[in-house]
Amino acid sequence: MDEGWRLRVLAVAERGARAVAASAVAVPSPRAADGAAAEVVVVVPGADDTAAGRAAEAVLRELQAGLPGHSFAVGRSRVAGAPEELHRAGNEALLAANVAEGDTDRPLLAFDDTGAYRLLLPAMSEDPAELQRFYAETVEPLVAYDDQYETDLVQTVEAFLEADGNVAGTAQRLFTHRHTIRYRLERVRELSGLDMGSTDGREKLSLGLKAMRVLGIAHRGGPATEAGAGGGRVPRR
């Protein structure tokens, strides 16, 4: 994010928050110093969680209206009752925003609504390298493969987990044939070493997907273009 764009996002976000809380302020994320993090922090004074929720909604509306053509994810922390709690609140908001970024149906997410992702907050805050290692051991090979061949292995894993391990249900969700799903799941096993047919394999890949979201790792994927990839089976190189 270049400086001009960052200042523009800051101004728009602050304008949205101040529509609800006049003393709200938007500041660059501490992570912005690395030049890569496209994040801003909005601080809303007060202990009213309902008002904070309205402010977050106003920020998202203002960003979408003021900067059309771009997508945004807004995460909201629990109330920080003292200055020493601001670091915790910032991590909660970041986790919620990262999870929201992976869910196009929920661009605004409160930390309290992140479900099992909340369990990964200590790892994200205290030992992100370990979280990164777990992601690398589970889902990263699938992400790399999807990016290289424009396949949908990660999406297939997500749909399979949502369908409680049912191939037919997964095929319905993805509007594809059951044989295609089986081919893709076999490819997942070959790439990750994890069998989606086993409880252990499903648990590890589910946690790997959560680690990917919490770490804010974007996943592209897309329609397969390489010969054979349409069925999820691409020849090894």
Results as ranks from 00 to 15, higher is better:
196 M>V: 10
19 A>L: 08
85 E>F: 03
53 G>A: 11
118 R>S: 11
210 K>R: 13
187 R>L: 06
213 R>K: 13
61 R>G: 11
106 R>D: 03
168 A>G: 08
67 L>V: 12
49 D>A: 10
229 A>E: 11
87 H>N: 03
106 R>P: 01
71 S>Y: 06
94 L>M: 14
214 V>G: 06
121 L>A: 08
134 F>N: 03
172 Q>A: 14
79 V>R: 00
93 A>Q: 13
77 S>F: 02
214 V>M: 02
7 L>S: 10
218 A>P: 00
190 E>Y: 00
122 P>A: 12
142 L>A: 09
62 E>N: 10
228 G>Y: 07
49 D>M: 05
65 A>W: 02
95 L>P: 02
118 R>G: 11
156 T>C: 10
210 K>E: 06
152 D>N: 12
21 A>Y: 01
220 R>L: 11
106 R>S: 13
94 L>R: 15
111 F>T: 07
39 E>D: 10
107 P>A: 06
28 P>V: 03
141 P>Q: 02
91 N>E: 10
69 G>V: 07
199 T>W: 02
227 A>R: 15
197 G>V: 08
62 E>I: 01
197 G>E: 13
99 V>N: 06
19 A>M: 01
198 S>N: 00
83 P>V: 03
222 G>A: 12
217 I>A: 07
59 V>R: 08
79 V>T: 15
1 M>G: 08
26 A>G: 09
37 A>C: 14
113 D>K: 15
165 G>M: 09
102 G>V: 03
106 R>N: 12
164 D>M: 08
69 G>L: 10
120 L>M: 07
154 V>K: 04
3 E>Y: 03
218 A>H: 08
100 A>P: 13
148 Q>D: 10
116 A>P: 04
119 L>K: 12
159 A>E: 12
188 V>Y: 02
157 V>R: 07
57 E>H: 13
10 L>F: 12
184 R>M: 14
70 H>M: 00
221 G>H: 09
111 F>S: 14
153 L>V: 07
55 A>E: 04
68 P>W: 05
225 T>Y: 14
177 H>M: 14
132 Q>L: 07
202 R>A: 11
8 R>V: 00
163 A>Y: 03
172 Q>M: 04
36 A>H: 09
66 G>C: 11
178 R>P: 09
215 L>T: 06
98 N>G: 14
194 L>I: 05
188 V>K: 06
154 V>L: 09
157 V>F: 03
78 R>D: 10
73 A>M: 07
67 L>R: 06
45 P>I: 03
16 G>R: 04
107 P>N: 05
36 A>T: 15
119 L>I: 04
32 A>L: 07
171 A>W: 00
47 A>T: 13
118 R>N: 07
135 Y>E: 08
106 R>A: 12
55 A>W: 06
7 L>I: 01
170 T>E: 08
27 V>Y: 01
138 T>S: 15
103 D>A: 12
112 D>A: 15
215 L>K: 05
159 A>S: 15
221 G>F: 05
81 G>C: 01
236 R>V: 07
42 V>A: 11
72 F>P: 08
94 L>F: 05
92 E>W: 14
44 V>T: 04
31 R>K: 12
29 S>K: 05
